[in-house]
Amino acid sequence: MIGLEAAFPYIDTHTAGHPTRAVLGGIPPLHGRSVREKREDFERRFDHLRSALLHEPRGHAAMVGLIPVPSEVADFGAIFISSYVYLGMCGHGTIGLAKTLAFTGAISQESGDRFTLETPAGVVDVRVEWHEDGRLGAVSLKNVPAYRRFEGLEVDVEGVGAVRTDILYSGMWYAMVDADQLGVALTPDTASANLALGWKIKQAIADVTDGLPEMLGLPAPSVLFYSNLGQGHSRQFLVLAPNKYDRSPCGTGTCARLAQLLLRGELSDTDTYRAENIFGVPFTAELAEKSEVAGTTGYSVIVRGEAHLISQGTLYLEKGDPLSKGFLSR
Results as ranks from 00 to 15, higher is better:
135 R>H: 11
135 R>D: 06
120 P>I: 08
144 V>Q: 06
138 A>V: 09
134 G>M: 09
115 F>E: 02
115 F>C: 01
138 A>T: 15
123 V>L: 11
106 A>V: 00
122 G>V: 02
122 G>M: 00
141 L>M: 15
112 G>D: 09
143 N>D: 13
121 A>W: 04
124 V>Q: 06
141 L>K: 10
121 A>Q: 03
133 D>C: 03
136 L>T: 12
136 L>H: 07
100 T>C: 14
142 K>D: 15
143 N>L: 13
135 R>E: 07
105 G>Q: 02
103 F>M: 13
127 R>W: 10
126 V>Y: 09
100 T>H: 11
142 K>R: 10
114 R>G: 00
104 T>V: 12
125 D>H: 14
109 Q>K: 15
121 A>C: 05
105 G>C: 02
135 R>Q: 09
126 V>L: 12
125 D>C: 10
139 V>N: 09
102 A>N: 05
103 F>T: 08
129 E>P: 06
142 K>S: 13
102 A>E: 02
102 A>R: 00
106 A>K: 03
104 T>S: 08
143 N>A: 08
108 S>R: 14
102 A>W: 03
142 K>I: 11
103 F>K: 13
120 P>Q: 12
115 F>N: 01
134 G>F: 06
140 S>Q: 09
143 N>Y: 13
128 V>G: 04
111 S>C: 04
121 A>K: 03
128 V>L: 02
104 T>Q: 05
139 V>R: 10
108 S>H: 14
117 L>M: 11
100 T>W: 08
119 T>N: 04
137 G>D: 14
100 T>N: 09
124 V>S: 11
140 S>K: 08
128 V>S: 02
110 E>W: 01
127 R>V: 06
102 A>T: 07
126 V>R: 09
105 G>M: 02
142 K>A: 10
133 D>W: 04
103 F>D: 04
100 T>Y: 09
126 V>D: 14
144 V>R: 05
142 K>Y: 14
125 D>F: 13
125 D>L: 15
116 T>I: 06
116 T>V: 07
130 W>N: 11
117 L>S: 10
123 V>G: 10
112 G>E: 11
120 P>K: 07
112 G>C: 14
123 V>T: 14
144 V>H: 09
118 E>T: 01
139 V>T: 14
139 V>P: 05
136 L>S: 10
120 P>D: 07
114 R>W: 00
127 R>D: 15
108 S>V: 08
133 D>G: 04
115 F>I: 02
125 D>E: 15
103 F>C: 05
133 D>E: 10
134 G>P: 07
121 A>Y: 05
131 H>G: 14
131 H>C: 11
119 T>V: 08
126 V>T: 11
142 K>L: 12
100 T>D: 11
124 V>E: 06
139 V>E: 08
136 L>V: 04
130 W>Y: 14
